[in-house]
């Protein structure tokens, strides 16, 4: 799928996973459109990708929280990309979100409304064309709401359900949808946390797994397979027991 001709849109390209995805797809020969807020700071990354892999790179300004701007942003790209990857997300602070509706609202919009609505608009364009790949980076936190991060988790649960429905809707219409649940990743989002090494992936590992899964037309990806097992067990715990646990 990622031949010389594919164009890959990465929304959230300034994130650690976004940067790794750009490297991974550029290495495979794709041309890239990197989208982010204050996109000018990605100029050195664009130059790096050109010098490393001789690929073409376009920068596109995009404030995902500006929902009304989504269509205009996609119009500026012209022909829809072959592959659209959405890597945006905001972990936020659970305790702040519990006390402050504005903080919770920002987490909810950043992880659900904004990415879901953008991918919805992308999907419509891909559906008209009859081809495309959509990749949404969701989270294992959306598999079950937990006290430590349920505001973030609930938004990711919504995003996961949205991607599932989108996949269902577009099945047989030439557009594939991949839901990615990375588990712990060693990024800016988790800096300073004590994460268990066996459960924690490097950004480049996420990027390689995403490209492999996308090329094979997979539906749901847990980057490290152990996470599929962990989350299965967590989902199976009876609520009466689960509500007393601190995990």
């Amino acid at each position: 799928m990622t031949g010389k001709s594919s164009t890959v849109l990465i929304v959230g390209a300034a994130s650690d996973i976004g940067r790794a995805l750009a490297r991974e797809y550029a290495k495979a020969g794709a041309s890239l459109i990197l989208a982010a807020r204050r996109v000018e700071r990605l100029a050195p990354d664009a130059e790096d990708l050109k010098l490393r892999h001789g690929t073409t790179v376009r920068l596109a300004e995009c404030d995902l929280l500006d929902l009304a701007g989504h269509e205009r942003f996609l119009d500026t790209l012209g022909e829809p990309p072959d592959i659209a990857l959405c890597v945006v997300g905001l972990l936020g602070q659970q305790q702040a979100a519990e006390a402050d509706a504005a903080a919770a609202d920002l987490i909810m919009r950043s992880n659900y409304n904004a990415p879901a609505l953008l991918l919805n608009a992308v999907a419509a364009r891909m559906e008209r064309r009859g081809s495309g790949h959509i990749v949404g980076i969701s989270s294992v936190a959306g598999d079950r709401g937990r006290a430590s991060n349920y505001v973030y988790g609930s938004a990711k649960a919504g995003f996961t359900a949205f991607l599932s429905g989108l996949r269902n809707r577009l099945a047989g219409k030439g557009v594939a949808v991949l839901t990615v649940k990375p588990g712990f990743v060693d990024t800016r989002m988790t800096e300073g946390m004590a994460l268990p090494p066996l459960l924690t992936a490097k950004p480049i590992e996420v990027a390689q797994a995403v490209r492999r899964a996308q090329e094979r037309g997979r539906d749901v990806l847990y980057v490290r397979p152990i996470w599929r097992v962990i989350m299965l067990v967590i989902r199976l715990l009876p609520e009466g027991l689960f509500k007393r646990m601190r995990i």
């Binding site: 650690d16 050195p44 990354d45 130059e47 790096d48 010098l51 490393r52």
Partner: peptide, 9 residues
């Protein structure tokens, strides 16, 4: 390690 861009060649 994250500051690993090729700047010119």
């Amino acid at each position: 390690l994250p500051s690993d861009r090729v700047l010119a060649f």
